[in-house]
Design a binder for these strands. Sequence first.
DNA 1: ATTACACATCAATATATCTTGATATATTAT
DNA 2: ATAATATATCAAGATATATTGATGTGTAAT
Lengths: 103, 103
Amino acid sequence: MNIFLNTIGAVNDATRVEILHFINTNGEVCVCDIENSFLMIQSRISRHLKILKDAGFLKVDRRGRWAYYSVRTPMDEFRQSILKEIGSLDIKIPLLNKGCKSE
Amino acid sequence: MNIFLNTIGAVNDATRVEILHFINTNGEVCVCDIENSFLMIQSRISRHLKILKDAGFLKVDRRGRWAYYSVRTPMDEFRQSILKEIGSLDIKIPLLNKGCKSE
DNA sequence: ATTACACATCAATATATCTTGATATATTAT
DNA sequence: ATAATATATCAAGATATATTGATGTGTAAT
């Protein structure tokens, strides 16, 4: 039950649904890209990414000073059905706006 | 987005997941049966049933002074996948304990 | 070693949600 | 009409969750 509620709770927030859809659409992005695209402060983004990661939707790959987030693969059927449903909604997400000052 | 969050929010609560699983297991039940099986006060049950109904998981059939709740049919693929996932969890639900004082 | 950037976490506050008891409404039997 | 049962809704307090700014950690360049 706890795992279920954790999974469900992660997508029970408009901001997280948007971020998840953004990553699912754009593929691997780093935190500063999300920060720059959504115009939200970094700590807020970071917190939401942690929740989505802990719930099994995202994975992180740290390379250098950046943390690259992407949709976790492989993914179980239930989480896939949630992703599919989110994809079918007509959610407005910002354009990818690269935010890292050096690379 | 709002419909999605409403659907998700309805199953983002242990009590509601248990009630939903209970109805999915036992078929059509009336409110006093749930009240008597779960040993919860009536207003609490009623509130949760309303949320599950408004989220598209349950339907009501009023006959006489009773309100009979059951899983809504037909049900879209996404809600079905949620029900399926809940069914796969190992959720403890009480035995059906008929509670209506007359019938 | 120092500076700059990327990211994570903490603590306080704000906001939303759940629970509960009381109260209201509706139906049926007498 | 009155009483009893079934159900719904309201308002208050309790609890959980989100947001924010500050602070901490790690990496890379100078």
